[in-house]
Simulated scan of single mutants.
Amino acid sequence: MIAAGLVLAALAALVHVYIFTLESFTWTSPRTRATFGTTPEGAEATKELAFNQGFYNLFLAVVAAAGVVATATGADAVGAALVLAGTGSMLAAALVLVLSSPDKARSAAVQGAFPLLAVVATVVGLLA
């Protein structure tokens, strides 16, 4: 189960790197605006906030990826801690999104599905 947790954590990290790219580099583009449902004016007004938020997503991805690498190199305890810290934070952010903006449930599901599965698989693997 640990291996499944690592694969799922890596996928979660990739999703969050993609979100980082959207928020930090392409926020005002028509495609990204369509993805997030923003107007040109709204995207321009929130460009600095999105840039900063993108980096939060990147940092969560880095923590999860570092956990995958640590586990793969034999540092199992450190790796598990980092995987759970990274994916647990991603999952918590997805829950905050859906609770604060129920109309963004689809986005929360995209953001939180791999982290949820990674947390479950990792915890089950650790308990086995």
Rank of each mutant, 00 (worst) to 15 (best):
I2H: 01
I2F: 02
I2A: 03
A4L: 15
G5L: 12
L6P: 04
L8Y: 02
L8V: 00
A9V: 05
A9Q: 06
A10M: 09
L11W: 03
A12I: 10
A13C: 08
A13K: 07
H16N: 12
H16F: 09
Y18M: 09
Y18H: 12
I19Y: 03
I19V: 15
T21F: 07
L22N: 01
L22G: 00
S24P: 10
F25C: 00
W27A: 02
S29W: 11
P30H: 03
R31G: 00
R31W: 03
T32K: 06
T32M: 10
T32C: 11
R33P: 02
F36N: 04
F36P: 02
F36V: 12
G37P: 08
T38D: 01
T39I: 04
E41L: 01
T46A: 15
K47R: 15
E48N: 13
L49F: 11
L49H: 14
A50I: 14
A50Y: 12
Y56S: 07
L58R: 06
F59M: 12
F59W: 10
L60S: 00
L60Q: 05
L60F: 13
L60T: 02
L60H: 00
V62P: 05
V63M: 14
A64W: 14
V69T: 11
V69A: 15
T73Y: 03
T73M: 07
D76P: 01
A81M: 02
A81C: 02
V83G: 04
A93G: 01
A93V: 11
A94W: 11
L95W: 04
L95E: 03
V96A: 11
V98E: 05
L99C: 14
S100D: 14
D103I: 01
R106P: 05
G112F: 09
G112T: 04
F114M: 15
P115T: 04
L117F: 15
T122L: 03
V123N: 09
V123E: 07
V124N: 07
L126S: 08
